[in-house]
Design a protein around this nucleic acid. Structure first.
Lengths: 243, 243
DNA sequence: TATGAGCCGATTTTCGAAAAAAATCAAACC
DNA sequence: GGTTTGATTTTTTTCGAAAATCGGCTCATA
C-alpha cells in the first residue's frame, strides 16, 4: 500500500476505507496496534478528516475500536472472541444455508459451481502455498458467499458478511504459522455437493464442522498470539505497532 | 434538539452520533430524507468533518446510507425490509434467550425484575399515551435487553442491539397513528415470568409472538407510509425533508 | 521517600475555508 | 419543439492549521 490513491468513481474516503479494512483483515495492521494519524496519513496519502471518516466506519464494523480522546486501535483478538465468533457464525451460516437451499434457483447453482471452479483453479495454479495468497482469500470468500447468496434475506447476509470478515482475520493469523493445510478443497467440494443436492441437514452439518475445525486449527497454530486480557488498561497487545 | 452541545467526557463527534442515532430512530429525521450538511450543521452545532464522522458510523450501522459523491440519506423503510428484519430478529432473539436462560444467575434475574418495574411504573405514571414517550422507549429497550443480558455472547448481543434499534424505528412510525395500544404490559409480564421460570421453549415462543404481532401492527397502522420502490433512482421517499 | 500540582511535548479532535463534483438553468442547435 | 452543450450555482468532499486533550515529567512539599 503506497502513496497516491486511485479514487476511481468512488469517494476518496471510501477508497481508504476499503484499503484499511483489507489491511486490518489481512493483519497488515496488527491486532491491538495503536493507529497513529501521522503514520496513517503517510501510509494512505490522505488527510486527517478523511482518515477519521474511514476509521469511524471500521469502528461501527467492529474492526477498529475508538477510545474517546485517545485515538483508535485495531480491534484486539482473543480466545474468547474467537470462540464466541465461531458460535455466532455457526448459527448464522446454518440459517443462511437453509434459506438459500429453499429459495435458490438454477442461476444460483450455476454461480456456486463457477465460484468453486475459480477458487479451485487458482489453488492448482498457485501450488502448495495457495492459502497465503490475497487473491485466493478473495475467491474463497466469494465461494462461501455464493452458497448463501440466494437466501433472500439482505439483513442476515449483511450480518454474515461482517462475521466472515472478522473470522478471516483469525484464519489469516494462523496461516502464517502453518506448513501444511488440511484438505479444505475436499471439504468445499462436499459442501457444494450437498447444497446443490438440496440436502439441508447435511449441508448445515458440513458447514458447521468446516467452521469449527478451522477455529480449532487457528487456536492450535496461532493461539499463542492472543492477548490474555489482564486487569487494567494494560493488556496492550502481544504484538507490534502500525509501522 | 438545539444548538450547544454538552460533550460530557465523550468526544463531540460521539455526542452528535448519539443524538443523530436517536433522531433517526425516533423518525425526527424521516426515512429517505436527504441529509444536507448546512441544515445538519445548524441542527447539531458542529462542523462538516465532525458531522461526516457521525454520519459515517451511522452508515455502517445501516441507519443512514451514503451515496458516493451525492451525500447521505436516512435509510428508507420498506415492507420487505420490515419483514426481513422481523425474520432475523426472531432468529436472534430466540437464540439469545436460550443462552441467557442457560447462563443467567440470580443477579440477572434481579436486573430483569428491576427493569420491568421501572418500565411498568413509568407506564402507570404516564397514563394511556405512555408509548409515545421517549423515556418509555428507553426503558422498554432496557427491559428487553435485560432479558438477554446474561447470554454471554458479546457478538450476538451486539447484533441483537442493532436489530432492535432498527425495529424501534418501525415501531415508532406506527405509534403515531394508533389510538389504542394492545396489552403489551401483560405480554411483557408473561415473557418475564417464563424467562425467570427458566422455561426456554415457552419464553422463545412468547418472544417470537411478541415480535411478530408488533410487526403486524406496524404494517396495519403505518404500512401506507412505506416506499414502494419504483424502478430507477426515482423512489425518493414518500415523505419530508430534514427540516 | 511518597504524594500531587502544574507544566510541556505529543497526539487527537475540531473547525471552516478551498477544491471537486453534481445539480440547475439557459442558450444554441438540430 | 425537443435535445444537447456550457456556464452558474449549490452541495459535497478534502485539506491542513488551530484548539483541545492526554500522558509523562519535574519539582515543591510534607
Amino acid at each position: 500500500m503506497r502513496d497516491k490513491a486511485k479514487p476511481a468513481g468512488e469517494t476518496r474516503a471510501a477508497d481508504v476505507l476499503h484499503r484499511m479494512r483489507a489491511d486490518v483483515i489481512s493483519c497488515t495492521l496488527k491486532p491491538g496496534a495503536k493507529l497513529r494519524f501521522e503514520a496513517l496519513r503517510e501510509m494512505y496519502g490522505v488527510s486527517f478528516s478523511t482518515l477519521r471518516e474511514a476509521l469511524s466506519r471500521l469502528v461501527a464494523e467492529g474492526l477498529v475500536i475508538a477510545e474517546d480522546q485517545r485515538g483508535f486501535i485495531v480491534a484486539p483478538v482473543s480466545m474468547e472472541d474467537l470462540i464466541d465468533l465461531t458460535y455466532v457464525r455457526v448459527l448464522v451460516e446454518r440459517e443462511c444455508l437453509a434459506l438459500a437451499i429453499e429459495h435458490g434457483d438454477d442461476g444460483w447453482e450455476a454461480d456456486i459451481i463457477g465460484a468453486f471452479h475459480r477458487m479451485d483453479r487458482l489453488q492448482t495454479r498457485l501450488g502448495s502455498n495457495y492459502y497465503l495468497s490475497e487473491e485466493w482469500g478473495k475467491l474463497h470468500g466469494d465461494f462461501h458467499f455464493s452458497l448463501v447468496a440466494a437466501s433472500g434475506s439482505p439483513n442476515l447476509l449483511e450480518i454474515r458478511q461482517k462475521l466472515f470478515e472478522r473470522a478471516h482475520r483469525y484464519r489469516r493469523m494462523s496461516s502464517q504459522f502453518r506448513t501444511k493445510w488440511r484438505a479444505k478443497d475436499v471439504e468445499h467440494k462436499m459442501i457444494m455437493d450437498s447444497v446443490i443436492g438440496r440436502d439441508t441437514a447435511k449441508a448445515q452439518e458440513l458447514i458447521e464442522r468446516h467452521i469449527r475445525e478451522t477455529t480449532e486449527n487457528v487456536i492450535k497454530h496461532a493461539g499463542h498470539l492472543f492477548v490474555q486480557v489482564d486487569d487494567e488498561r494494560q493488556g496492550r497487545s502481544a504484538d507490534v505497532a502500525a509501522e
